[in-house]
Each structure stands twice: as C-alpha cells, then as structure tokens.
Design a protein around this nucleic acid. Structure first.
Lengths: 162, 162
DNA sequence: GCCAATTGCTTGAAGCCTAAAGAAATTTCG
DNA sequence: CGAAATTTCTTTAGGCTTCAAGCAATTGGC
C-alpha cells in the first residue's frame, strides 16, 4: 500500500470521528456557557444547582442521593456538597429514610419548587433561542442521531466498569 | 384555542428543543467521562491538561495565554493555573514575548510533545470506538447538523457579550 | 446468630473553573 | 507628550468535581 502525507492508511483513519467529537464538545460548551451566565445574572444560581433541582422537580416524593448521583452522572461526593448548600439555602428538604438509615431522601421545598418553576420557564425559552436556526426536521434528525450516538457511547462506557 | 393537559399551546411549545439539549448534554457527559477515566488510568493525566496540550500541538511556535483561553473557551485565570502546573511538570515551555512584555508565549517542550502524541494516538481510537455504531453517513449528517446548531448557538452567545 | 461483602453516604486532598478585581504594559488620541 | 482606555495576565474568593479512603448500615451466606 502506498501512502503519502495526504492519503493516510484507510484502515486507521478515525479523523472524522474525532472531528465529530470536537464539534459536539464545542456545541455543548457554548450552550452551557450561555445557560450558566444567564442563570447567574437572572437568578443568581449556578448550573449544577439548577440541574439538581431539575432532577427533583419530577419526583414529588424525593430521591436518594445515589439516585441523583446516577441521574446527573456525577460522583457521590459531589452531590453531598451540592445538597448541603441547597438545604442551607432552603431550596431542599433532607431526611433520613426510615427503612434504611444509610439513605438520605431529598425533596424540593415548597419555596424551592416555586423558584425552580420560575427558572425552568425562562430556561426553556433560552434553549429554544439557542436552537432557533434549526428546523423541526433538523431537531428530529439530531434527536435520532444523538440517540444512536448515546447508545454507542454507553456500550463503550459500560463495558469498562460493569 | 382549546387546550388540555396533553395539548399545550403550540406557540410556546419548546419541549423538543429542551429534549434535544438534554440529549446533547448526556452524550457529551458520557463521552467526556470515558475519555477522562481512560486518560487517567493510561497516562495519569487530566482532561484539561490534555486539551491544553492538544491546542499547542498544532502550533510549533506557541500561543499566548489569551489565545489558548479563547480556543478552549475557558477563563483566563483558569489557563494561568493550568499552564503553571504543566510548566512545573516539564510539558510546557513559557516565555515572555519580546515585543509585548504583557504577553506570555507557551509551547510544548520536546518531551511534552512526544508525550502528547502518544496520548493523542490512543485517544483517537477511543473516540472511534465511542462512535462505532454510527455509519459514515451518520457521522457526516451529525457534523452538518451540529455545525448548524453551533452557528445558531454562537449568534445567541455573542449577541450577549459582543 | 455471625462474619463478610455490599451499599449509601461523607470526608479530604487535589485540581478545575468562574467572576471580579487588580497590576503591568501598550495603544489611542487629544 | 501624556492621560485615558485597552489588553494581557495574575490573584482571590467561592464553588464545583473527581478520586480514594473511610464510616455506618444492611444484606447474604453459612
């Protein structure tokens, strides 16, 4: 097989995938930055706090710290500190489970839920604005392809720490 | 217009975009986690350090800290600390510009570049593995749609701090 | 019952990250 | 020229994040 600087070996050319990953990362970083700064200026709240509250908004009866940790895909220790600050600020309510005294169940307080709903409503419009150049068809197509990518990445991630 | 709990007002339904954003974020977090843990176990290096070295690998003559900061989309102060540690570990070389004494130019050292090339080669195969379920057509289509999304998000981000 | 393994959470050390304020050098412009 | 604005980088305070180690409670054999 003959190669030169332009024609790399075909069987090891993974450049397209690499470029795809970089583009994916750029998009996410860009959007995350926008959301982060708007959350700060409009509500003086951090993105991780918002994300945690978003997880809790769906479940009236609360979740355990482990559940939150899995859903948010962050470490346990991370959630401990995050929850600590949100309980402190009155957004969260935390209690030890009666059936298992290792388990901490956290819920949004009434005030916390109201505050979150207010933030979430604006947040949704920001995201719509972010993607405003995409047609409904673009959105559907991206959803489909990202679902496929997610599945692929998941196999790869789970195969490592089962 | 008649509405019920299932049929929300059409003119304010931004749920699809929101779901798209969450999926994008999930994909990125998943892949980032995979890359991070592999970089750690194979090379005992962090992702931010790898990213910084990747920026420098393309430019033999080095870059200024500001350039790096813009390319990586992180704050200036962040780069200062990151560079500090990489100079300390011998991966980077740092010098004050002769034409402008405010400017610091950083470059990969010989050892740093060799180390990076070794990491980058493996990294590329990990990414290919992550996306292995996608066909070449999927990859092209994702590239196209993400480029469009990036443009849209960029307008939105730049319109805020011009 | 009892010991080992597991599970759920916390802690500690190190590093990453931002925003904001500040120091130093350069550029702009009257 | 010289003051003001700008640019480049550092510093500081606070918070986020991981990993690894550790503690407490529960579960699963035996």
């Amino acid at each position: 097989m003959i190669l030169d600087s332009e024609t790399k070996a075909v069987e090891s050319d993974h450049g397209d995938e690499l470029r795809l990953w970089l583009r994916l990362l750029t998009c996410t970083t860009l959007i995350e930055g926008t959301v982060r700064s708007r959350l700060r200026e409009r509500f003086d709240v951090t993105l991780p706090r918002f994300d945690l509250m978003a997880q809790l908004d769906r479940v009236p009866d609360g979740m355990t710290l482990s559940d939150v940790s899995k859903r948010m895909m962050v470490s346990n220790g991370n959630v401990t500190g995050l929850v600590e600050r949100l309980v402190e600020s009155g957004h969260l309510d935390r209690r030890t489970s009666e059936s298992d005294r290792r388990v901490q169940v956290i819920r949004l307080t009434k005030a916390g839920r109201a505050e979150f709903r207010r933030m979430a409503a604006e947040h949704e419009t920001w995201i719509a604005e972010v993607f405003s150049d995409l047609t409904p068809k673009d959105v559907r197509e991206l959803m489909r392809l990202l679902a496929k990518a997610k599945g692929s990445a998941q196999k790869c991630a789970n195969g490592r720490t089962p």
